[in-house]
Design a protein around this nucleic acid. Structure first.
Lengths: 108, 108
DNA sequence: TATAATTGCAACCAATCGGTTTCATAAACT
DNA sequence: AGTTTATGAAACCGATTGGTTGCAATTATA
């Protein structure tokens, strides 16, 4: 059962769960109230999120609070980093172009 | 056929294609040489990447050069933004803790 | 013009996905 | 002790996925 972060965030329901857990830790039941599916379906999503360590459990009596492991999100950020470099370079190149145009204008 | 960026980057082969296209525009044939699959499989991946506008085609004779639409990657960055805020806040809180510890030490 | 090269598309296939219903287990009430 | 509550796990199901092979269309080359 290979689980990685990218596969985990591919599903919109799981992204919504992540968004909710970013605000506060929640139980599966509480989470399920926000969706149009059964509690069991949410539970399966939580299993996937747990497997790739995007969330962790905190047992409290018979309830289980799921909380977001924000650190794991950095993995996506790290992957994006290489591409961010590219678009930032392109942006600064555009800056150069604009600066040149302005300069030419001023020199008129 | 709903395609979104998150579903597109879920597949490791597609992420590899994105990485290759970040370096230079390439034809499906050239891309396929980097993978252990058929050219048609790569073609299907390119179709998905095209549908969600992560790559665009540039026809050149009978060849088609695929090039990365880096702008679209920002969509992921934008989504990450909300979580980046959280981990940066936590980091600065850690900074505070460390600063306090240092202060207490210095005051000894 | 015939042939080779580059590509996308359709049909098919096994595996996986996201969902459901049903059941088992453990903790908290009455 | 018996019942309710909170949860995960298993079995099942239709849809989707990522792959294949085979074919058609277009462009370049002999």
């Amino acid at each position: 059962m290979r689980r990685d972060v990218f596969q985990a965030i591919a599903d919109p329901t799981r992204r919504a769960i992540i968004a909710l857990l970013a605000l506060q830790a929640m139980t599966p039941n509480a989470l399920a109230e926000h969706f149009d599916t059964t509690r069991q379906a949410v539970s399966k999503h939580l299993r996937i999120l747990t497997e790739c360590e995007l969330v962790k459990q905190e047992h409290q009596g018979r309830e289980i609070y799921y909380q977001l492991e924000i650190e794991k999100m950095k993995e996506i950020d790290k992957w994006l980093e290489q591409y961010r470099k590219i678009w930032e370079t392109r942006f600064s190149q555009l800056d150069d172009v604009l600066a040149t145009i302005k300069k030419q204008k001023d020199e008129k």
